[in-house]
Design a protein around this nucleic acid. Structure first.
Length: 136
DNA sequence: CTTATGACGCGCA
DNA sequence: TTGCGCGCCATAA
């Protein structure tokens, strides 16, 4: 196995890999699924990705449906092009409508297989002891 | 051991 | 409505 110890980043990336083509998810949504302490962790995880990685990082956008600076270096629209190539449409404000292209979340079977437990959506996750799942 | 950095989200004025 | 600031935690050096 890999010598790299399992970290929260691995969980985040694993979920990101589950986002189907033509769909997008927000940092907050990913954070919610893996029960990350904050959406920032998701961004940090993606920041550590190597160029040419197999992780569909492009499908992760902010809660506003917009693209983060790192996904659009120099306003090149890199991330936008990748998403458009997958069929994702952008609004006039370079914004994606989650109601249309938002990801519904990973398959229950996939979650169960990993032992994930989804909590109620808008409600804040148990900040006390969210029972760090994934790899015990 | 401490310090610095980092792809967000939300509240408040 | 817009803009600004804070909190959040993990990793690397």
């Amino acid at each position: 196995m890999s010598a790299t110890p399992p970290s929260i980043y691995d969980h985040i990336l694993a979920v990101v890999c589950q986002i189907p083509r033509g769909r997008v998810a927000s940092y907050g949504q990913i954070a919610w699924i893996v029960n990350a302490p904050t959406p920032r962790m998701v961004g940090y995880a993606l920041a550590g990705l190597a160029a040419g990685s197999d992780v569909p990082w492009q499908r992760v956008i902010n809660s506003q449906g917009g693209i983060s600076p790192r996904g659009d270096p120099g306003g090149s629209g890199r991330q936008r092009k990748l998403l458009e190539a997958e069929g994702v449409e952008f609004g006039p404000n370079v914004r994606v409508d989650f109601a249309r292209f938002g990801w519904d979340g990973p398959d229950p079977a996939w979650l169960a297989e990993r032992g994930y437990t989804l909590l109620p959506w808008p409600g804040k996750r148990n900040s006390s002891r969210p029972a760090r799942r994934g790899r015990q």
